[in-house]
Design a protein around this nucleic acid. Structure first.
Length: 303
DNA sequence: AATGATGTCAACCGCGGGGCA
DNA sequence: CTGCCCCGCGGTTGACATCAT
């Protein structure tokens, strides 16, 4: 008596998408925009269910997606947010607008979980204060995840990235098409050895060079900066976390004492919550990300 | 060189929430 | 209120790649 499977109808294709299907889907969306997924299979003739089309678009074909090669910077953000939010990948992805929730989830499951576990194991046997901090941070992160403690403390979205803010200009989509023709996904290679039926890849260079030099300079400057880089390594993120929770505990104690003192006159205190190190870190992250992002990525939220 | 183990990640599945008649 | 449909989310799978023996 369960729900009927969405994609088990006869004639509905499953499994990896072919280049031909990608082209059909992208050109349809280029014309009609994303959304209204139920009409996509019928209007395009794709033998896919609407869900599969949406998934292919949001996780792979959508413009503005960066795949692979997670930087230590991004690693730090993911580790940090995962400890704050748990496995709420869509929420985490909203802080990394160029990454999909699926990619972040995969990266966490295949790389970061192991990395942290390994680190925890070595740190547990160590007696240096730095390692102690990190192991403590790991334990705290675990505890917080279980208690779901901070979700109410840090309501989302903390920053003006919404998952819907991805760039969707036709320019970007056509850039995607050109990009596909010149570098199709690796598992498609055997389908097409000559993908030049609808492309003039030489023209792509002019359009999509929007401040790319500027951006690349910033990124390389940031990534080349040893101090900054080491600050954002995941080991240090964990250490910062431990420190920030110590501070939070301290703040709490202080608050309780203050409350008792201020029972009589409670109107002269600053209404803003204290800016914890943790929040400051997130804020700095967002600021640096805003600098790195192409304008298109958040223009929707600004106008 | 062969083959079994492990890693990776695109895609799938089922569920819950929201909108609507 | 109820039932239906669609969408998005998070857990999981399994095909393919890579590594180890």
């Amino acid at each position: 008596m369960g729900r009927p499977p969405c994609c088990d109808k006869v004639g509905i294709k499953k499994g990896p998408w072919t280049s031909e299907e990608d082209i059909i889907l992208v050109s349809y969306i280029q014309e009609h925009g994303p959304g209204n997924w139920r009409s996509v299979p019928t209007n395009t003739g794709l033998m896919r269910c609407s869900k599969s089309c949406r998934l292919r678009w949001t996780n792979y074909l959508r413009p503005g997606i960066k795949r692979g090669n997670f930087t230590p910077h991004e690693e730090g953000i993911i580790i940090h947010l995962q400890s704050l939010l748990g496995n709420r990948w869509a929420a985490i992805a909203s802080y990394l607008p160029q990454r999909t929730d699926n990619d972040i989830k995969n990266y966490w499951n295949t790389h970061l979980k192991k990395k942290i576990k390994k680190f925890q194991a070595t740190a547990a046997t160590s007696t240096t204060s730095h390692d102690y901090m990190i192991s403590k941070a790991c334990n705290m992160a675990d505890a917080i995840r279980k208690e779901d403690m901070l979700i109410t403390t840090f309501p989302l979205p903390f920053f003006p990235y919404a998952s819907s803010n991805y760039a969707c200009s036709t320019e970007n989509i056509s850039r995607l098409l050109q990009g596909w023709v010149t570098s199709s996904p690796k598992h498609h290679h055997h389908h097409h050895h000559n993908n030049n039926n609808n492309n003039n890849s030489s023209s792509s260079n002019n359009n999509n060079n929007y401040n790319s030099n500027n951006i690349n300079n910033k990124i390389s400057r940031v990534e080349g900066d040893q101090d900054f880089e080491s600050l954002l390594s995941f080991e240090n993120i964990l250490a910062v976390e431990a420190l920030s929770f110590d501070m939070m505990e301290a703040e709490e104690v202080q608050d309780n004492q203050q409350d008792e003192k201020n029972n009589n006159n409670n109107d002269n205190q600053q209404q803003q919550p204290p800016l914890f190190l943790l929040e400051k870190w997130l804020f700095d992250e967002a600021a640096s990300m805003m600098e790195e992002l192409p304008v298109d990525c958040y223009s929707n939220s600004m106008f």
